[in-house]
Amino acid sequence: MKTESLWYIFINASLINNFVLAYFLGICPFLGVSGKKETAMKMGGAVTFVMLIASICAYGLNALLIAIGAPFLQLISFIVVIASTVQLVEMFIKKMSPALFRALGIFLPLITTNCAILGLALFQTNLGYGFLESIIYALGAGAGFTLALLLMAGLRERLDFADTPSVAKGTVLTLFIAGILSLSFMGFAGLGG
């Protein structure tokens, strides 16, 4: 593995290979919770937070699994740990901020099944990142996710009041915007490299 600067890891995860727009990870919340800026912000924050936790867990777990010689348990243990962590976070939010809980609604349990989180854990393992690199990678991925979500939310909020043709309303338009955003993020290619 070539060593990369932390800065590059961050830029790469957030802009160049944006999790949503380049890797298609976390599309469900991207389509579902990008209607309102406030919700998008909260969701982005929640995902970033969970990513951070998942990244740390995955790093530790991976080291442990390699130590005991059972790398085939990678997937199962990752998902179990992440699922439990998310459930803990969910309980915590429900207790601390019922309003936030209502706003995120059904998507909080879905963070568990958010590909972005598991994807992050798998990718960082595959890339062989160290502890610090993993954390930066998680932060970058979270920032990229939040950015994509926020851009989409801003546009969708404006387009709520548009004469969009009825067949293109909703998911279709969101996907079109996602495509255009994905194209514009191509401008970052080669940045920092």
């Binding site: 727009l21 890797y23 298609f24 998911t171 338009l173 996907l175 079109f176 495509g179 994905s182 191509m186």
Partner: peptide, 10 residues
Amino acid sequence: LPAGGFFTLA
């Protein structure tokens, strides 16, 4: 490219 995926699905 990723964008193509979005467009085709849309």
